[in-house]
Design a binder for these strands. Structure first.
Lengths: 199, 199, 199, 199
DNA sequence: CATGAATGAGGCTTCATTCAT
DNA sequence: GATGAATGAAGCCTCATTCAT
């Protein structure tokens, strides 16, 4: 008797394991056997769910994004004022918790791989399109309420998102000069400067 | 009679080839044989100069940075006004020429690898320290001349550099929404906002 | 369903092949590929059972000893008189059959390797301890029955065993002056001299 | 101006280095580069004197034997009584000094290699022929003086030499049960038993 | 005579993938 | 559905040998 739920669970379990192994060992060092070990199963089973390693990795990247988005759903659906929401959005990307760090690491690994994999480039583009829409939406909302100064909301969004990515990289690499605290300061300053009357 | 210059040349030749191959095939797909082919020698020769592949890659990353810095030496030594120099600095990082694109690709590959290699983290940190110093210096200079508004110059530098990194990633990944032109706009806007009286 | 017996069989099969190849090609010339060919499998399979070549070789040496000991089990368990058993023991080491020659060759290769491998030294020591015990036991038995003359049984055992090794080397090397027949004579003479009343 | 003595010196120097490296690293681990390092020269120079590695190794084995024989010349030419000379001969083979240990190690490595190299088998055979002649001569001399009991002198020589080889192997392998002291005892006992009237 | 940079064939080892159970 | 033994292609690295200087 086929039990679809079992399959779905197994799939998620394997993808989660894959993300963890990518974050720990690094993309290039991931072996199917590692994933199997981490997921508590066998290489045979991994290949039962994913034909090739490439497919597995790709699915893991998508999984990483989906989980990431879901963790922000509360913020995105919030009714708080735009400034507050923007700050919360930024803070949710600070690599503080283990979960966030893992997600960032996976994402960083993706960039290197995506340079040579059109499929991953599309994934990246759609994800960033999503984020850009969300952030630009919040800014536009703030401008409508006369909270934020004028200027291209999409340009501001691009700047903020890029800044977060660039800073996160340095934090992830354990830079002695770029800590989570400094990352927060830099981002908050940028958001602050968007206000019509800085607090 | 040993000719030291030959050795140094050969080394540089191999490192250049390594950077090119990393940029083309991606870090994880680099084979020593590829490097040898590109450099016009044999795998034996590559290993004559670099004991292991890891050592080769690490040296290539350092080479990539050294070359990158040298290409900016003119800007850094320039006597132009701070605003002008900051714009030139930003523009020099736009992934337009083949050389710049290659350097960016190598750098992007480094991030993924550095997550798991302390030696590369140190390299990254020292390089970003250098850039931070340079940019903060320019900003401080502009503030002294009353061109730039007040505020922590290091914070501004961190924001600008991170923004460049984050935007470059998206451009390199061939994002349909983030082109070189948009990247330039976003960066220039940020620099513009630093001016006391925006042009 | 895993079949443990299959694994054990495969292991023994590979070890047997390894001993044969060592005896034929010599220790230093053994290639994992040779072993695989001889065992009728692939190099991948050899490495599935033995992580490294060193481990494989070591296990082969142990295998060689275990098999060797088992071939003497009848003699060791025999109830014949001590003189008879000692002669049989000596004769069992004459490099006459293919099996014995192979075992001797493997053992000779081990000596060279063991000079630089503590693990093999321990193996050698435990094996010779075993032989010394057995031979000394037979001699002590003979002395108790007044067949053999007095004197340190362990000393006699050491002399006899060393003599067998030294002679076997010369025979194995195809010496024109040391044939199996002469080896037998020399050993039998020594045993003869142990008798209270030489026959 | 060619200086033959320089060449001869260099040759000896390289051969000595080769023996030392064989004794230290083991035959299979010897690299031409190691020999060059030890001899304080370059691989190019080693190959200037020896066309191939095989030739180098073979010459080193011969060198090892020649040196070994020369160290015994005093004993062989001695006018002492046969018993005394036999004991001295045995003692000269006890692996006590560094020089003797090195020579034994090289010799042990030779056995393994000679199994598969006819040229080395011939070398071994001629060397053992020499030793057999010497020892048998001493024994025959002792018998003529009524010191040693009757019996085939060549047989006794073979037994003694083989015993020395077999015991030396165990000592070299660092056996806990076979020390230099025990080796001496065993050999001396055998020689003692050759006397007509044991002391 | 001597050097050591360069070569490239060859061997060990890894690991994604398959398939019989 | 799941397993893991088996495979073999592929890659890193070693090292004897050559040759221009």
């Amino acid at each position: 008797m086929p039990r679809p739920s079992v399959e779905a669970q197994r799939r998620a379990q394997i993808l989660q394991a894959t993300c963890e192994v990518i974050a720990e060992r690094g993309f290039r060092a991931v072996r199917v056997a590692d994933v199997a070990d981490r997921a508590g199963t066998s290489t045979g089973t991994v290949h039962y769910y994913f034909d090739t390693k490439r497919e597995l990795i790709h699915a893991a990247f998508e999984h990483n994004f989906a989980e990431s988005l879901q963790r922000r759903s509360a913020i995105l659906a919030s009714a708080a004022d735009p400034h507050q929401r923007l700050v919360e959005f930024v803070d949710s990307y600070l690599p503080t918790s283990q979960t966030t760090v893992t997600a960032w690491r996976v994402w960083t690994e993706l960039w290197g791989e995506a340079l040579h994999t059109p499929g991953l480039q599309e994934l990246n583009d759609s994800v960033y399109g999503e984020w850009r829409r969300v952030v630009a939406g919040i800014i536009r909302d703030g401008q409508a309420r006369n909270l934020f100064r004028t200027g291209d909301p999409v340009g501001y969004a691009n700047a903020l998102i890029a800044m977060i990515d660039g800073l996160a990289i340095q934090v992830l690499l354990g830079s002695k000069n770029m800590t989570v605290a400094r990352m927060r300061e830099v981002c908050h300053s940028y958001v602050q400067d968007l206000l019509v009357v800085p607090a």
